[in-house]
């Protein structure tokens, strides 16, 4: 698709807005529809568009595979870590009441952290999967 000028220009123009919308869905999930799962998918789709326009090698320079693997694991660890933190503070696993100065503040903090963990894992796992598929289709020997 790399020689389609109109697609390239329009796609490049759209990518930042898709990322911004992903962040909006992530952090507005407490108030409206959305949350970590949807936000992760939307954020990853920005990278999918970049791959379709410029090829998988160009995108992997921005988001190398080892970084994505780290981020995917970090998301799960962040989620489980919130649970362990609440255990350490003397409550049940994933009981956020004890995380803040008063229960509702703890709930807010816990939900934001947990949703961040979900978003990080979903976005990076989807990018990893797509890159793996896309890199197999690339002709060999092109890598620098």
């Amino acid at each position: 698709m790399s020689d389609h000028m109109i697609l390239r220009v329009v796609g490049k123009f759209l990518i930042p807005y898709i990322m911004l919308f992903g962040l909006y869905v992530q952090f507005h999930g407490d108030f409206g529809p959305g949350g970590g799962f949807q936000a992760g998918v939307i954020f990853a789709s920005a990278f999918v568009i970049h791959t379709l326009l410029f090829g998988v090698r160009a995108t992997q320079k921005i988001a190398p595979e080892w970084v994505l693997r780290l981020v995917a694991s970090a998301g799960v660890l962040l989620y489980a870590g919130v649970g362990v933190a609440s255990l350490m503070l003397g409550a049940n696993f994933l009981d956020y009441d004890v995380l803040g100065a008063y229960p509702v503040a703890g709930q807010h903090l816990g939900i934001i952290l947990v949703e961040a963990g979900v978003g990080l894992t979903v976005a990076s796992v989807i990018m990893l999967m797509f890159f793996t598929f896309a890199a197999r289709g690339e002709p060999e020997g092109e890598s620098p």
């Binding site: 999930g29 529809p33 949350g35």
Partner: peptide, 12 residues
């Protein structure tokens, strides 16, 4: 204290 009920159920 989260207006979106779905998020309250899902995350907490």
């Amino acid at each position: 204290d989260v207006p979106n009920l779905v998020t309250a159920v899902l995350a907490s």
